[in-house]
Simulated scan of single mutants.
Amino acid sequence: MLGQSLPPLMAEAELLAATVMMGEHGRRRAGQGDEFWQYRPVNAGDSARLIDWRRSARGDAHFVREREWQAAQSVTLWVDPAKSMAFSGDKARAPKSDRAKLLALATAVLLLRAGERVGLAGDAAPPRPGRAQIVKLAAVLSGAEEGAEYGVPSATGMVSHGRALFLSDFFGDLTALEAALTTAADRGVRGALVQVLDPAEEEFPFSGRTIFESMGGGMRHETQQAGDLRARYLARLAERKDRLADLARAVGWHVTTHHTGQPAQAGLLWIYNALQGGR
Rank of each mutant, 00 (worst) to 15 (best):
R243V: 08
R240A: 01
R243C: 04
D228I: 11
A245L: 10
K241G: 12
L244R: 06
A231Q: 11
Q225K: 13
R232E: 10
L234S: 02
L234A: 04
Q224V: 13
L247Y: 07
A250L: 11
Y233P: 01
A238P: 02
H254V: 09
D242S: 12
L244G: 06
V251T: 07
Y233M: 00
H221R: 14
Q225R: 15
R249T: 13
V251R: 09
Y233H: 05
L229Q: 06
H254W: 12
D246Y: 08
L229T: 03
E239V: 10
L244P: 02
E222N: 04
A235V: 10
D246W: 10
T223L: 03
R249S: 12
R232V: 14
A231C: 01
A238S: 09
V251C: 01
R230V: 05
A235E: 12
E222G: 06
R232Y: 07
D228N: 10
A226Y: 02
R236H: 10
A235I: 08
L244Y: 00
R236N: 09
D246F: 09
Y233T: 03
W253N: 01
Y233Q: 01
R230K: 13
Q225W: 12
R249Q: 14
R230E: 04
D246A: 15
L247V: 08
A250Q: 11
A245T: 14
L244Q: 06
D228V: 14
R243T: 11
Y233C: 03
H254P: 01
R230H: 01
Y233R: 03
R249I: 08
D246C: 07
A238T: 10
H221P: 00
R230C: 02
R249P: 00
D246I: 13
E239D: 12
D228Q: 15
D242H: 12
L237P: 02
Q224P: 07
G227R: 05
A238Y: 03
R240N: 04
L247G: 05
A248D: 04
G227E: 14
A235L: 13
Q224S: 13
A231Y: 03
D228A: 15
E239R: 13
R240V: 07
L234G: 03
L234R: 08
L234Q: 06
T223M: 02
A226T: 02
W253E: 06
A250F: 07
A250C: 04
A248G: 03
W253I: 08
A235P: 00
E222I: 13
A231E: 10
A238C: 03
D242P: 03
E239H: 09
R240C: 01
G227M: 04
R236K: 13
L237D: 00
Q224W: 14
D228F: 11
D228S: 13
D228L: 15
R243Q: 12
L237F: 11
E239K: 12
Q224N: 13
A231F: 09
R230W: 01
L247A: 05
A235C: 05
A248K: 00
A245P: 05
Y233V: 00
R236I: 08
D228T: 14
D242R: 15
D242C: 06
D242W: 09
E222M: 10
A248S: 04
A231S: 09
L229M: 11
A231T: 10
L247M: 11
R232S: 12
R230F: 01
L237W: 09
V251G: 05
A245I: 08
G227Y: 00
